[in-house]
Simulated scan of single mutants.
Amino acid sequence: MQLYNKLSAKEREALIDQAGTERLTLSFYTYAHIRNTEIFRNHLFINWDKLEVLGRIYVATEGVNAQLSVPAPNFDAFKEHLDSISFFENIRLNIAIEHEAKSFLKLKVKIRNKIVADGLADDTFDVTNKGVHVDAFKFNELIEDPDTVLVDMRNHYESEIGHFKGAVTPDVDTFRDSLDIIEEDLKDHKEDKKLVMYCTGGIRCEKASAYYKHKGFKNVFQLEGGIIEYTRQVNEKGLENKFKGKNFVFDHRRAEKITEDVIANCHQCGAVCDTHVNCANEACHLLFIQCEKCAEAMDTCCSTACKEINSLPYEEQKALRKGKGNSNKIFKKGRSEVLKYKQ
């Protein structure tokens, strides 16, 4: 019985091209109590592999976080399987604004301690005691209220290319970093301000809302379904779109364009640009913003040193990487002394 992906990304890419089938990119999450994560993980892999589902799915005792793509002809069968699981039944699926057949190239179902890393002890608060969910209409009303503090619960490289008007965008590398910063900044307003939060699809805000209620905040709200669901609702209902720029996504697309606004800059020359790339030097792989002109001049590398390494024969590059761990710059996305125009 196959329980793990056996095809390389290139092999899967070739199969996708050969099939020529439309694929739907989507995400969902749920907080639930899962006793045996290994059995549940294997159950998901076996059933979704049959349906040619690809993506990155995390299973933990606190729930499931899934980002994946499904062949359009198999979507009904996939939804039927979801509904056969009690805590997945009628779950909201965040359907991507832009679809890409190769947004994922492998099926990875992994067991994690948590579906959202928060650095907190599990018994400090009840993650199911969440804040008030609001739709796009109510969200637009709330963020115009002078007693509202709107907070982006994403990381710096996400909010840099797109965020809501008037949002506080913490300059952080991790979700955990945001929790203490926001609490400290708003410690004197736990009762008189409305704390309204948003993220990509809602999963981080769900946990953050429970955390801030535990910390004494009285009026906690979160954008249901995050930026993805908000965009769908404003388009369907003709509401004012208060988001500007792109929504960063964690697959091969890297971002979805929500509006035509470009609010970021190339990290190398400062030109108006919001295109994320990974440094072509595999020993670096730094995520940063690079315009087309710099991409051509630098061979999609973040620095002259990386460009020189990337120009070497592949075997020489492998030899240079041998025995060396990945640079910490990889995990501090968009942060490096070589990026002159990183704000």
Rank of each mutant, 00 (worst) to 15 (best):
L3Q: 08
N5Q: 15
A9S: 10
K10W: 15
E11S: 04
R12H: 09
R12G: 07
L15D: 14
T21R: 01
Y29E: 04
I39Y: 02
L44Q: 04
W48H: 00
L51H: 04
I57P: 12
V70N: 02
V70K: 00
D76H: 09
A77D: 13
F78E: 02
F78D: 00
D83C: 06
I95S: 03
A96N: 04
H99K: 04
A101V: 04
L105C: 06
K108M: 07
V109E: 05
I115V: 15
G119S: 06
K138W: 14
K138M: 14
N140K: 05
D147T: 12
V151E: 08
L186N: 11
K193S: 14
G201C: 05
E206V: 03
A208L: 04
H214Q: 11
V220R: 03
G226V: 06
G226E: 08
I228R: 06
R232Q: 11
R232V: 05
V234P: 15
K246T: 01
N247M: 13
E256I: 00
D261I: 08
G270T: 10
N278W: 00
C279W: 11
E282N: 13
L286D: 10
F288A: 02
C294T: 12
C294P: 15
A295T: 08
A295I: 01
L312R: 12
Q317P: 10
K322V: 09
G325L: 08
S327F: 01
K329G: 10
S336Q: 02
L339C: 08
L339R: 02
